[in-house]
Simulated assay, not measured.
Amino acid sequence: MASTLTHAIVHNEGCDLHYWHQGSGPLITFVPGGNGHGLQFFPVMAALSDRFTVATFDRRQMSASQVAPNMNKRLSPPQQARDIRAVITALNFDTSIIFGSSSGGMFALQFAHDFPGMVEHVIAHEAPTITLLPDASDIFEWFLHLMEVYDTRGLEQAAAEFRERLKGYDDEGVPAVAAPDPRNKKVFWADEFPVLLGWVPNLWRLLENKTSVGVMRGVRTGDAFFARTVDEQAMILRCPKMLVPGHHQGFEVETDAFVPYLLDMLDLLEKRKAGVKGDN
């Protein structure tokens, strides 16, 4: 599967971003979340490469996209958006469909905010915008608790408590996801988690801009906080919401079941966008 991919590097703001692409047609850019690696999207990219140009990348400070030793910096969502722009531009495209999962969904929405002219559609899959939740206070304080655990008891204990909220990964018959580079976990907890616990893209500006957005939550995820945020996003954005197969990474391990839903969402967004244009 990976042998059909083309690997390349684009330098942006002090980081060599490693990216992979294949296929032809309109561009879909897949944005990783907290695990940081593009590898998780290789199966869905292979399934779509007969009709789209598909691309993904390792986010900065993650997997292959390392910065100089001891030069890691705290997560900047706007910088993540500029990294997405750098990959799209390196592929010689002016616009792209953006699919982002987990915090990658948040970065995809930030990209749409910062570079609206480069967006065809955005699909955010279980983007954990926790401050939008009705129980945001409880979730926020749990996140603060996890930071304290990380500081006092270490990464593995914090990660173990976080994993307890990840539903569906242990369901019978569901394959394991690909393991990310061991360095990624430390970057996530040290440099990304403290920013993600309270940051939300300006969804109201996306609504004002009439950005084409669809949101998804996985059927195996149940009532996990990062699934319930999808309902809040849909209400604010007044956009299509879809219940799709799989857990938080269902696109990776239940790809055959997931892809038809992704195509249906793209078809729905195309028709909706045409309708909006027709009203102007």
Rank of each mutant, 00 (worst) to 15 (best):
R153W: 04
G105C: 09
H113M: 09
G168N: 04
L144F: 15
D83W: 05
V87N: 06
M147R: 09
R82Y: 09
M71G: 12
V149T: 05
K73I: 15
I139V: 13
D94G: 11
F143D: 12
T131H: 06
D171A: 15
P78Q: 10
R74T: 15
E156G: 03
P78E: 13
N72C: 12
Q110W: 01
A86Q: 08
P78G: 13
M71S: 15
M71I: 13
A159Q: 13
H145R: 11
G168M: 05
Q110H: 04
S137M: 15
R74G: 06
D135M: 09
E156Q: 12
L91F: 11
W142K: 07
I130A: 04
Y150D: 02
A124K: 00
F93H: 13
A124W: 00
E164A: 14
Q110R: 13
S96I: 04
N70W: 15
D170A: 14
G100I: 02
V119N: 00
V67N: 05
L109H: 04
G173N: 10
G100W: 00
L75R: 13
I98D: 02
D151F: 07
S63R: 03
R82T: 09
F107T: 05
L144A: 14
E156F: 11
D138P: 02
V122H: 00
R74L: 14
I123Y: 00
K167T: 10
N72V: 15
S63V: 07
S63Q: 06
F111D: 01
L75Q: 13
A90L: 15
E164T: 10
N70E: 15
V119T: 07
V67C: 12
F99W: 03
F143L: 10
E172I: 12
E141V: 09
